[in-house]
Design a protein around this nucleic acid. Structure first.
Lengths: 220, 220
DNA sequence: TATAAAAGTTAGACTAACCTAACAAATAAA
DNA sequence: TTTATTTGTTAGGTTAGTCTAACTTTTATA
């Protein structure tokens, strides 16, 4: 049985492995920073996780989840994203409110609960941020997605997921009435600063920054 | 902010105060036994709770929740019972499965979550065991209820709540197809051993023990 | 390639929540 | 009312998870 804290370390390692796409290893400081603890603390926990065969690592080396470790981490991610979906769809939480509560709910221990929740939500494939929800067997649905900034002027797309999940960005999206599935047409790209003129659904055209376009995943 | 453990102590004290109806104080051993810890541990925690003004107590004296302590304990009970209702009604958990998971869910910290959950469940007044769900303001609905064993032969009633919440009893009820609201008619009381001949809804008469009749609350 | 900077580890300390063993107070029984 | 029993407390110890400060290893740079 994993402690609340151990679970958080595993989840952090999984998240970091997604971030460093090519090489899924993480460093001690990186992990500590992610979790908001000091490197010394992370080192201690790493020893414990290694003892339990959840990570492979040696002194001064890189950290990698073992198969068991990864399986556990995916199970936690699954819970997190199912709960986010529940909060968003059933309890009317807004996009930027779900994460914090799901951070707590993801640690609830009950296999039945997770599976029943999934069924109750009608087996959703993606969470409110557009991130894939792992299946009970650990499979993670993949959706071909590109950054909005990668599209050509004139092309159309649908919002698939957010890359940046900060409150400020999510609230901005909400203000623009953009959610997962919203249709966007790129009208023009301003060469000067990379900003974009876009049409959201059938609204009036508006301009967004390059930073914006780099924070939103879309589906062609 | 209360820790998970502190919350459990407060909840235990509230539960004990319900049990000892006339005098709501509890003793150290009583509390320790209820929580499955040693008396020494309970003493330590008591000092902490007193420090935080959640209980009144002095060395070798009785323990009593303060107003703040009681308010907190009721909030936890509220969450517990709302979650039980959710699990039972929305996720098809059975009567005897809800408690264990609700024990975990009751510690989730989010005022919005509780209130939204209550709304989602349509402001239920009683949980699956028939116990009252405290309102957001701390009020606890009361339902006039008596033990089945207190009724006269010939009288009819509706199941209001269970006194015994053990798995064995709950499973037995399930087998008899008794839930909250089920109609029961008392046909005969056997003087010899206090057992009862009863009719459940419109089924064939059957006999239940005195222990059974002492474990079920009904409404006349 | 020598050295400075960055990354990671060790040692020692703290807190919360638990324990056991020994003791003290309150209550019940003889 | 003395004594035995029950109830409750204290002292000292353990573990998980955290910290700081000092140290070591690796990596990057001059």
């Amino acid at each position: 049985m994993l402690s609340y804290t151990e679970e958080n370390y595993l989840k952090a390692l999984l998240k970091l492995s997604f971030q460093n796409e090519d090489k899924p290893e993480a460093g001690t400081n990186e992990m500590a920073a992610y979790l908001g603890v000091k490197p010394a603390t992370a080192t201690d926990m790493l020893k414990k996780l290694k003892e339990k065969d959840l990570v492979t690592y040696q002194k001064y080396g890189k950290i990698l989840l073992t198969d068991t470790g990864k399986k556990n981490a995916i199970a936690i991610l699954r819970k997190h994203r199912l709960w986010e979906t529940f909060l968003y769809e059933k309890l009317d939480f807004s996009w930027d409110e779900v994460h914090e509560v799901a951070e707590q709910l993801e640690h609830i221990q009950s296999a039945k609960l997770v599976d029943k929740l999934e069924e109750f939500l009608n087996f959703p494939e993606f969470d409110p941020h557009g991130d894939p929800i792992p299946k009970a067997n650990g499979e993670i649905p993949i959706l071909a997605k590109t950054l909005l900034s990668a599209l050509e002027p004139g092309s159309s797309c649908k919002v698939a997921a957010v890359k940046d999940t900060s409150t400020l960005f999510l609230q901005y999206l909400q203000k623009l009435q953009i959610t997962i599935g919203t249709k966007i047409k790129i009208l023009e790209v301003i060469a000067f600063d990379g900003s974009l003129s876009i049409q959201i659904e059938d609204e009036e055209p508006r301009t967004v920054s390059m930073k914006f376009a780099d924070s939103l995943f879309v589906q062609r």
